[in-house]
Computed example of a mutant assay.
Amino acid sequence: MSSSYITAHTAWPTSVAVKPEVQRLLAHFYSLLDIPDTSVGHRFAEEVFAKDGVMFGMGPGFDGEAEIRKSREYAWIDYTSRRHEMLRVYAHDALGLDLLVIGRVEMGVRNGRTVNEEFVARFVVDEATLESKSPNGDDGVRLKFSRVWSNMEPIMAAMREQ
């Protein structure tokens, strides 16, 4: 897989081979999160998640294609930039489809402050899509579940600063 800032320092599991198409999908997920465009939810619905996928951020979840399409409508209200990096990936299953990611994100907030924070995320790949090809030319592999956890206090503190 070609290296980007998202995966440049990623340590992938050594006990399980995570398929290259799954690695590309996770990198694509984070690259979309870093695009300051409120319509990115449409790309999540079309390029990242299965039709019945579920996506949890730091707030309420988005269940299914219609909700995922709306998932980024308010994502940039408080932020000017985001830059995600995946640092470590752990696999729960022998196929490398249930994954835990430890990462770091740098976020610029509207008042000019910058916050660097670690996060943990879980991804479950939709096994039925593993061997598929998408009509838009990508691998076709999709997520059926994602959830992220992070300490929001440093971000909230930065937002309160003048």
Rank of each mutant, 00 (worst) to 15 (best):
R43A: 10
S150C: 05
L100P: 09
G137V: 03
P154W: 07
P13A: 01
I102S: 14
P36H: 11
F49E: 02
P36E: 08
R147M: 07
T10R: 08
P13C: 00
H9N: 11
L99Y: 10
R88N: 15
P154C: 05
R72A: 15
V125F: 05
E127P: 01
N116Y: 09
V18L: 06
T7S: 11
D78L: 13
A27Y: 02
L130Q: 07
N151E: 10
T7G: 02
V115T: 07
V48F: 05
E118R: 13
F62T: 03
F29I: 03
T114R: 12
R83M: 06
A91G: 12
L26G: 08
A11E: 12
V105Q: 12
E73G: 12
M55F: 13
T38M: 10
A94C: 11
G140L: 04
R72W: 10
A27W: 01
L100A: 15
A45I: 04
R142E: 02
T80Y: 07
T129M: 01
F44H: 02
V54I: 07
T114Q: 10
A94H: 14
M107A: 13
F44D: 00
V54D: 00
I77L: 15
P60Q: 15
W76V: 13
T38L: 09
R110Q: 15
D126H: 03
D78P: 05
M156Y: 06
A8P: 00
V54P: 00
N111G: 14
D63P: 00
R82W: 13
K19P: 04
E131A: 00
E21K: 06
E118T: 10
V105Y: 07
G108N: 09
S39F: 02
A17S: 11
I102T: 14
D37I: 01
M55R: 13
S132E: 10
D34Q: 03
D52C: 00
G53V: 00
A66D: 07
S146A: 12
